[in-house]
Write a protein that binds this DNA or RNA. Sequence first.
DNA 1: TCGTGCATGTCGAGG
DNA 2: CCTCGACGTGCACGA
Lengths: 231, 231
Amino acid sequence: MRLVIARCSVDYIGRLRAHLPLATRLLMVKADGSVLIHSDGGSYKPLNWMSPPATLHVTEPDEDDNEAGVAEIWNVQHAKSDDRLVISIHEHLHELSHDLGADPGLVKDGVEADLQRLLAEQIHLLGQGCTLIRREYMTAIGPVDILARDAAGRTVAVELKRRGDIDGVEQLTRYLELLNRDPLLAPVRGVFAAQQIKPQARVLATDRGIECLSLDYDAMRGVDDIESRLF
Amino acid sequence: MRLVIARCSVDYIGRLRAHLPLATRLLMVKADGSVLIHSDGGSYKPLNWMSPPATLHVTEPDEDDNEAGVAEIWNVQHAKSDDRLVISIHEHLHELSHDLGADPGLVKDGVEADLQRLLAEQIHLLGQGCTLIRREYMTAIGPVDILARDAAGRTVAVELKRRGDIDGVEQLTRYLELLNRDPLLAPVRGVFAAQQIKPQARVLATDRGIECLSLDYDAMRGVDDIESRLF
DNA sequence: TCGTGCATGTCGAGG
DNA sequence: CCTCGACGTGCACGA
């Protein structure tokens, strides 16, 4: 990785066009040829960037550029598209290079997949006597997160979200509409399950006869840990 | 901005939990307290990060940490939530600080507005004899991208997307429902226009009697260029 | 390789 | 403040 602090202007030409006026910024060149241009604020998104794989080609400024104070031009060309980044460097302030090597990568815990696994294992949270039919039950308009059968033998379709919002209720509504056309499954109950369910989503779900289920992830993981320790 | 190359491990506890095993990485501390942890690959998204506003508090390692080889611990606490990043620094390899100042920001040119302008200008793409009523036709629930009249005199509501997926069909459905209550406009045809339309969105649209229209942006821009050259 | 859905999404506009 | 929609979305996973 190569880090350069420089006064520069930047132009991106590709899926759209974008321009950064002259200012002091951090240029980060990664081992795979990707380039990030960061300011001293904002979130993790760079002001501008080039995705890998890309190649960096440094050229001398032409007469006009030279007159404008450009010392060096970086042409960053994406390897698989016409996307191009042109960095006009006016002043080179700092430089630092270091080989970081490969990274072991991030280990995540608590994304929707974890929540789905836990709910499938603790399917009784849907109600006494519920049994799992399957996770990721495929339909023409996408997979239903969890399909189960309740104590009375009715099919239950579960839409699972980390944060329950209106669009999640819409999604479940579409699934229910489709599933209820299948005589082997109908009638199908809907359950909207999430760690947090927004009031508006709860109102909409209730209005459509969809049950809301708040999930306590820490408690569910606690149960999972205890079960794991038994084996 | 402060840049540190260090051998470190990282733990994030917040909306989820995430862990980065010990490795050499770039730590970027911005002026607003945000922190980014980058490896030497991947795209612009850091391995882990803390959004602003946040505060960095450096503490000495306790006995266990010391034994494990930790030299220094960075506690990064988000100012408005419980999100927390703990960076255990084993080895400090490089350091570089520089005040970048405020950035003038990115100037973007021509994205979604272009597609809408082009379709309005080439309204015949909706079908022979179509005429434009207006762009951004306002309704109580938001603006319809394009409203037109077809050769048979029927109103046509167009929802325009760069990438057409189910959400766009839902949006157009809401507009059609509303527009069809207006006796001056009803009956209103729906056209879902996008550069690419996903199969599931196409299924849903067709099921609801909404026509799908794939747009060739390059061709449309080409026509635009030719027309421009005539004047 | 391509398509699909999630994301600690981020970001900006508008009510 | 919150909601909604766009994004050069990125990203992992499955067909």
